[in-house]
Design a binder for these strands. Sequence first.
DNA 1: ACCCTATCTGCAATCGATCGCAAAGAGGGT
DNA 2: ACCCTCTTTGCGATCGATTGCAGATAGGGT
Lengths: 365, 365
Amino acid sequence: MPGRKPPVTVRDVAREAGVHPGTVSRVLNPERRHLISEQTATRVEQVARELGYGVNHIARGLRTRQSSTVGVLIPDLTNPLFPPMVRGIEDELHPAGYTALLTNTDSDPQRELKGIETLTARQVDGFIIAPTETNVQRVKEMIEDGVPVVLVNRTVPRVSGFAVTPDDRRGATIAVEHLISLGHREIAHVGGPQSLSPGQDRYRAYLDIMREHGLERDAEQLVAFADAFTGGAGVAPTQELLQRGRPFTAVFAANDLLALDCIDVLRAAGLRCPQDVSVIGFNDMPFVDRFDPPLSTIRFSHYEMGRRAAELLLGQLSGDTSAPRTLVLATELVQRGSTARPPRRRQTAPRGRTRSAAATSLARG
Amino acid sequence: MPGRKPPVTVRDVAREAGVHPGTVSRVLNPERRHLISEQTATRVEQVARELGYGVNHIARGLRTRQSSTVGVLIPDLTNPLFPPMVRGIEDELHPAGYTALLTNTDSDPQRELKGIETLTARQVDGFIIAPTETNVQRVKEMIEDGVPVVLVNRTVPRVSGFAVTPDDRRGATIAVEHLISLGHREIAHVGGPQSLSPGQDRYRAYLDIMREHGLERDAEQLVAFADAFTGGAGVAPTQELLQRGRPFTAVFAANDLLALDCIDVLRAAGLRCPQDVSVIGFNDMPFVDRFDPPLSTIRFSHYEMGRRAAELLLGQLSGDTSAPRTLVLATELVQRGSTARPPRRRQTAPRGRTRSAAATSLARG
DNA sequence: ACCCTATCTGCAATCGATCGCAAAGAGGGT
DNA sequence: ACCCTCTTTGCGATCGATTGCAGATAGGGT
């Protein structure tokens, strides 16, 4: 292995340009550039370029006590929701000279806590977090300690920190209204974990709008909750819904991943989507338009969510107090193939053993 | 904003424990822990825990000249290929105390170059790069300068650096053989950019296997190249293929994204997949199994690719010279709904104006 | 000619952890 | 009692850039 190039320091540049290192530092720092005469400044810049000088962020960071680095904690990069968001964050951060340090928590409180530790040791200047409910306390502490934090996607109850979220209530309302306008009356809800704000808000909005349309009669029978927002978590609640035997012609799933599970389970029970049961999700993840059936869902911009979160954080970091603390992103309906008018004969959900019962029910219907 | 907690330094711990800062440093560094007596060591650890001490990576980095940080350059996180890979990288890096700094290049040589600069200024200890062809030279230089670099997914010709790639030739061979075994004889290829190794290798393997089966007669007529591996880039070459009028019943696309474009264009021309034309991709991106039609493709583990790349890099960083320099990942066929037996009557690709001609052709067929 | 101000640049301490060197101390052997 | 070795710990310079302070220089005014 050939030896690495000897690093060029401000001292090297200073010597070559015949000035003091301090002067070089000032020239290269836009903030202080004006303190130096145009003449020396250009000379120093010239020399710096010739020598191929580049600041050592680490050394700078030690002195200035800031790393120009931001910790980003998300559950799982592999969830299609996050890549666009992370890009939004990075696209906003980079021009400002910041870099993101990404950490996946897998929604595990332990890992989240450890991530916070690690990132803190790395002296990140702030955090962008999609929090896990269990660590509300820790996040609260951070905020109270004055650590710049922006929450994304999820919000933490009773903590008045900075946050960017989709308009969960409005989105859920639009989704359910869409189903109603198609003629559905028996609308089930595969809810997200009630410990997380999106799960809660979407569920509440569902209840409200059902009530508003006089469809609330034993609505609890039509609701089942997943214990996570991840793929696979939607299987159990959908099965539960089927087993209860309470008929429904449409499902509002708390997010796209759950909606996909839901469609799978329905299909396994012999129920086609959308002919027998309509399903609508939430998030408009990339590529769901190509799915079979193309998923109807509620859209908001994940990229924008990330970008805004980064923007808010940069505002905090620069001490700008005039910036808003909370941003709610607009949601819109995207109607695709997974929602349609309800079947002519009322669809009866199967009783007893899922599979065979479903077949029976279909035969009857 | 309440003031931040005063940071606890090794000096604080030293004072409290009645020892020298150097001693504290040694206790807390596993490498040198054995130099200190068990008694003082435990006492120091105790105090450190009480005070909530955490190393300042920045200060450490300044002294040790390493940041425990790795630069990761990828074209676009939003391309479904990359999230699993990045997770693989991070899952391997974290336990070793390293953190990834992610940069998206959008396959733009300028941005890639700038990314390398920025990351270098941040003193990353090494790089994991999915290189853009234009910067072969730069990457070569880095390697020659002794900068630890691992290439992923793409390889750089004539540079004997570390690399992890899928088995492109084998994968392509399997794909084409699959089509042949289904009964296809006229198999087109929507190729990737020939400046990138996967584009080249997959194309060559296609040619070889076609020749081997005596299907090579004017094969050039059945090949068109995309100028990128990204979504949308597959539209033009597919249209070109159609306009040439040379009949084909199957397409081997150089990756999944191109395959999707291909299916779209065919569909717009009135050709159904797989009834009229079979299409197979490469990569097995997440969720393509849910697409309409479910995409047949060649699978290799993106997660593993990332993990291995990180592993190779860590090996380099620790000066382990026994490790392999190049890893080729196994590929396998995933047969789904986008490939089927060719139609009974030979499918003739349309001539002239794409859309209407296609309809005519269908009517005839 | 002299003083004052404004502009520019040098000086040196500092951020926090690390590590080569050497001193101090403990224990063993004769 | 003395010397030698080995273990443990302290000392202080160092990594590279930044920045408060003060010195130096130039220019202007009277």
